[in-house]
Design a protein around this nucleic acid. Structure first.
Length: 414
RNA sequence: GUGGCUGUAGCUCAGUCGGUUAGAGCGCCUGGUUGUGGUCCAGGAGGUCGGGGGUUCGAAUCCCCUCAGCCACCCCA
């Protein structure tokens, strides 16, 4: 730690990366807007209680991954590990439940103290949407369709598949949980160490264990689908019918689960095999119990979050920034004049770079490195005649242009 | 949190049976043009060999610790 370095698992976003990130967030925001989901932002940190209540005291995120600290007034606060909790808190504290349904989009940094690896950082960035107040399956369909549309817009639809499952309503899930625990307890000796501890805490999670021994046990486990009551089965059938109608392909994955109590019915993930072990690029589900669990009114909810880092690794290259025009003064008089000229041209909407120092050769060389489209050379003799020399840096052609006509002439380059 | 691999110039990397001033390509700077870039030629700057400790006459090279990156587990976006 003696050398100056960024905190583990954090990265500087230099312009190229920043542009790739912005492309993901911008595409998502635009598409979400077409579905009526508008951007909101919650604070980057909340009272720790907000996350403990939504994520549960036993989840890994709460027990070992949160960036929690005491601020100068003694309050225990936490850098948000995910986005839904803050939105739910805002709905309650802002009295927003008066005007349901609520449709929100968000984008921003999240923080989890995990061991970094490909597609996983300690400060990472997510986009997400939340739909509150819609308990009908059409809400699930819309939210999933929105995710699919964003992936399409980003050009990653071909690299991802939609995995879908249902957890059923509370009664169905509790019934299944009992059946599953009974089954797993009977074969406890065959389970991995991790899964034995999950048995008490979060038994559904054992279903998607990667451990070969666990998988063998899970393969013969009772299926959640068999525990669904009529209401749960009908709900899921409606969701599937809606997706079919929209032509959104999916594969059923009965092992796709969410561990937390407030999740119910639909669970889904858009996954890829192009990112190593971090397969999920968008993941979400229905959380009808969340707002009530936080102390608000009973409120249906469904949403998803997507990893910007992961999506940007798959997405098409973002458009390059516009090529600049370089202003190249020769001599002190022209140098002074250039500052005002640059200002005028920028106000006209042009992208202008000033060479800050050096002779003509040096500044042209710099213009070339900046990938400038053209250079405006302004020397004493040009100045005396109120003209400038405009050099096309791609072709090498030069012409003299009256200063009054300069902006219009340069606009032809873009 | 666990395990494996890695860490030499801004970038990509060479260099270890321990031994004189640690190298290359690219990039950067200067000059070849006193008002003309990209190519070419010549020259130059730049490294506490991730950090700390140890072994040794001598460590980039061996040992220990530590930090970071990558990969997998765990967890998840």
């Amino acid at each position: 730690m003696s050398k100056l370095q960024p905190v583990r698992g954090t990265h500087d976003l230099l312009p190229d990366r920043a542009r790739a990130f912005r492309r993901v967030a911008d595409a998502a925001r635009t598409v979400a807007g077409r579905y009526g989901y508008h951007e909101m932002a919650t604070p980057i940190f909340e009272f720790s209680e907000v996350f403990k209540r939504t994520l549960g005291d036993t989840s890994d995120i709460v027990t070992k991954e949160m960036y929690t600290f005491t601020d100068r007034s003694g309050a225990e606060v936490t850098l948000r590990p995910e986005g839904t909790a803050g939105v739910a808190r805002a709905v309650i504290s802002g009295g927003l439940a008066q005007r349901m349904p609520l449709k929100y989009f968000y984008a921003g940094p999240m923080f989890r103290h995990e061991r970094p690896q490909k597609g996983r950082l300690r400060q990472f960035h997510q986009i997400g949407v939340e739909l509150l107040g819609v308990g009908e399956p059409v809400g699930d369909v819309e939210v999933i369709a929105l995710g699919a549309a964003i992936l399409e817009e980003l050009g990653v639809a071909g690299q991802t598949v939609l995995e879908l499952n249902t957890l059923g309503n509370t009664g169905s899930r509790e019934a299944y949980r009992g059946v599953l625990v009974d089954y797993l307890e009977a074969r406890r000796a065959e389970l991995s160490e991790d899964s034995v501890s999950r048995l008490a805490r979060n038994p559904l999670r054992i279903l998607d264990s990667k451990n070969p021994g666990d998988r063998a046990v899970v393969a013969e486990a009772p299926l959640l689908g068999d525990s669904l009551d009529d209401q749960s089965a009908d709900f899921f059938a409606s969701v599937r019918a809606g997706l079919d109608r929209l032509g959104i392909a999916y594969t059923l994955n009965p092992r796709l689960v969410r561990g937390l109590d407030y999740y119910c019915h639909t669970a889904f993930e858009f996954t890829t095999d192009a990112l190593g072990a971090q397969g999920a690029v968008i993941a979400g589900g229905r959380y009808d119990g969340l707002v009530a669990q936080m102390g608000g009114p009973q409120t249906a909810g469904i949403g998803w979050a997507g990893g910007i880092e992961r999506l940007s690794m798959l997405a098409d290259e973002p458009d390059p920034p516009p090529r600049p025009i370089a202003l190249v003064p020769v001599g002190p008089e022209a140098e002074a004049e250039t500052l005002a000229l640059a200002d005028r041209l920028r106000r006209a909407g042009l992208v202008i770079e000033l060479g800050y120092r050096g002779n003509l050769k040096r500044r042209l060389s710099r213009a070339d490195r900046l990938d400038a489209r053209a250079a405006v050379i302004l020397g004493e003799d040009e100045l005396a005649r109120d003209v400038a020399t405009v050099r096309d840096l791609d072709s090498g052609d030069q012409e003299e242009v009256a200063l009054s006509a300069l902006a219009d002439r340069l606009a032809l380059f873009s």
